[in-house]
Design a protein around this nucleic acid. Structure first.
Lengths: 188, 188
DNA sequence: GTCTATACGGAGATAGAC
DNA sequence: GTCTATCTCCGTATAGAC
């Protein structure tokens, strides 16, 4: 039952999610989230105890989205190799945003990793969802003790592509890196 | 001639350099730089017109450091392939810091890329110094139109390794990624 | 050139009316 | 539950004494 309060809560989370991505967590003020969501900033403390807790709710929403996506990928692709390639193409989904704002997971973790380790640890759960799903696919391909390192390596390649693509605002570069990654998957 | 004023200027830059790396640019307050450098924050505006200009000076110092390092690498290694491998090992220099604070270049660019594009563009010059030096080596290896893409790819692999190593505070992972990169260079 | 004191704005967070 | 008004702190930046 989506109560009125729950609806407002969701609107705040949605607005914060986009602003945290575009501007960064620490550089986003409540006043901006208030303007974007249409809810006065004074009300935020009825829904969240603090800004940190708002971020926690944003991450929780992202985690749900990732879980759903991975679930769909499982349904859509039966072969582990095809699943790995689907992951590799993730950067092509929103290349414009990646080039402009970086990877939503990567940039948030980088920011929080400086001085907000508790929140960073929470944000790293997004990576872990992908990681565990990738491990599953590598295991299905016959890799055992190498599955986890391979998954981390795949995460790293995607993040490297996103970061350099962002630094140089270079969309074609991201596409070519995705090609490279897919070739690598085929070579396994 | 290092005048007294110039010495103070350098001390501010040194302190800011470390704090910008450890805490991020926007999360570092003048009061902290003041405490670390022993120079009252009120004095900063005698040496720099703004915080942005202080960052500019920090980046200028880092650029000089990179130039010097690349120069030394040229002297130390004659073969282009050995030079590429030396670059690949750069993450091993300060792995503890990379794991704790991320890559000094990458994390700064990610932060500035959100809402401070002019400063990000300046910060990207650090990457460009490495990029151009790497292109030089790939050309010497016989690559022509592929030299630039290969250089970008190498930058991306390093950044991906640094980012994931930072996210999971995983030092061994960075070492294993460096191994992978070196194998890739050998395969060229 | 170097210092202290302070202006000014905006941040997160709170109080209390309705 | 929802709103407005406001508190307190701390950021960058400035003024002006020495």
């Amino acid at each position: 039952m989506a109560s009125k309060g729950e609806k407002n809560r969701q609107r705040i989370i949605q607005a914060a999610n986009e602003l945290f991505y575009h501007k960064g967590f620490n550089q986003t003020a409540f006043s901006e989230v208030a303007e974007a969501s249409g809810i006065p900033k004074g009300n935020f403390y009825y829904y969240f105890k603090s800004k940190d807790e708002l971020l926690d709710a944003v991450i929780a929403m992202r985690l749900e989205g990732i879980r759903d996506m991975l679930h769909e990928w499982r349904a859509e692709y039966a072969e582990p190799r095809e699943r790995l390639k689907r992951y590799a193409r993730i950067l092509l989904n929103e290349t414009r945003d990646v080039v402009r704002y970086g990877c939503p997971m990567g940039s948030l973790n980088v920011e929080l990793g400086k001085t907000q380790l508790a929140l960073q640890s929470r944000a790293s759960e997004m990576f872990t969802l992908f990681h565990d799903w990738l491990v599953e696919q590598f295991v299905a391909l016959g890799y055992r003790q190498d599955a986890a390192p391979l998954a981390l390596h795949l995460l790293a390649m995607s993040q490297g592509a996103a970061l350099i693509g962002n630094v140089y605002q270079d969309q074609p570069f991201i596409s070519s890196e995705v090609e490279r990654i897919i070739d690598w998957i085929d070579s396994l």
